[in-house]
Amino acid sequence: MRRFSVFCSRLVASLVAGGLLTSVLATNARAAGMPQMDFKNPLVMGQFFWVLIIFFCLFLVVKFFSVPQVEKVISYRRSKINHDLTSARQAKSQADKAVAALNKTRHDAALEAQKHVDSILQETKADSAKKMQELQVKLDQEMKDTEKRITEARNKALTQVDQMAKEVAYLLVKKMLNEDIDSKVVDQKISQLVLSSSH
């Protein structure tokens, strides 16, 4: 492959060199006079003015027709892009405003809900405190009533204990003495004992 590429490059180089050599030899005859340098030829010198005239015509057409045509399309596109960009910016601004309003509404609603929750909580607390207070009063009342009833029951029991003690004492004394005794004496003695013990 390498040999082939070397062969090809040598072949091309020799062809180029041969071509150049041949052309140089062949054009030697003409080297003395390039047609472009034949200034005596009226056609050669005629180009000097023709190119100016034709270029000036092209310049006028380009200036008053071609350039405005391209410019018009480009400026229209630029204005359209600018207009679209402005619309997009406005839409974005409106969207931002809407999002801000939504956020504000949400924030206000959250605040309102929190207030509502707080007020309900406070009401509930106050209500429960009031109920607790009422319950406490009721409990206190019931406690008082209960204590009163207990006291009454105790007093009542104590009065019964006195009678029972008198009867038990009368029976014990009667059993021990094995004779009837005056119950009044026993009652008197028991009453004295109870009184002394209560003091």
Binding site: G46, Q47, W50, F55, C57, L58, V61
Partner: peptide, 19 residues
């Protein structure tokens, strides 16, 4: 007479082609 050669013709063609 007006010294119009193939060179000028090509100039005209170029000047027409562009616009």
């Amino acid at each position: 007479s007006i010294r119009f050669s193939q060179s000028e013709l090509m100039m005209v063609i170029a000047a027409v082609i562009v616009p």
